[in-house]
Amino acid sequence: NAIRLAGDMSHMASFFVLLFKINKSKSVAGISLKTQELYVLVFCTRYVDIFWNHLSLYNSLMKVIFIALSVMIVYVMRRGVPQRSTYNPELDSFPHHWLVLPCVLLGVAINQDPTSPFEMAWAFSIYLEAVAIMPQLHMVQKHGEAENLTSHYIFLLGLYRVFYLVNWVYRYMTEDGYWQAIVWVSGAVQAVLYLDFFYNYVKSKQKD
């Protein structure tokens, strides 16, 4: 449906905005490497089914694109010259292990098929995605204010989440028996994390 497509497009746009920013400014200052590495982990654990689930060309292609773009971002941040010298590890200080560990435990404990390692990995990726933005938001707070393109990037990620939430309401109403508790609760948590950022983003845009 169109709402979900809008969500996927804003999600993909967020990758391109970030890649554009780090290529054009030659700097990754203010970007959390931890958040970007968590996203690589999120996509690699969620899309292992790329090898056996062929739902549509769109679905498979987008999975490849999301993995490739997230890996590319981490690669530029770690290896890019001069980008790698502009990274601020002292500001990227969120204790991310405390995000991963509970998500592993939750993924093993709460999933749709306790006999399937794939379902555990899949649930883990849903839980981790919900909180993966936290190191980035933490960094923005420490910095005081995010650069324009960085804030557009975070805004697009939040927008993607909002579109998905609306899409789930739409699917619940139009598809008989469509019900995804794990995804909905995690998605709602994820959206809540953006509220404060959204508020400040809109406020600063009004000032401009």
């Binding site: 999600h11 689930n53 749709q112 098929d113 899949w122 899409n167 469509y178 995804v183």
Partner: peptide, 10 residues
């Protein structure tokens, strides 16, 4: 199947 309905999303 029903449990896989979610996997059509990204």
């Amino acid at each position: 199947g029903e449990t896989d309905a979610k996997k059509d999303e990204l």
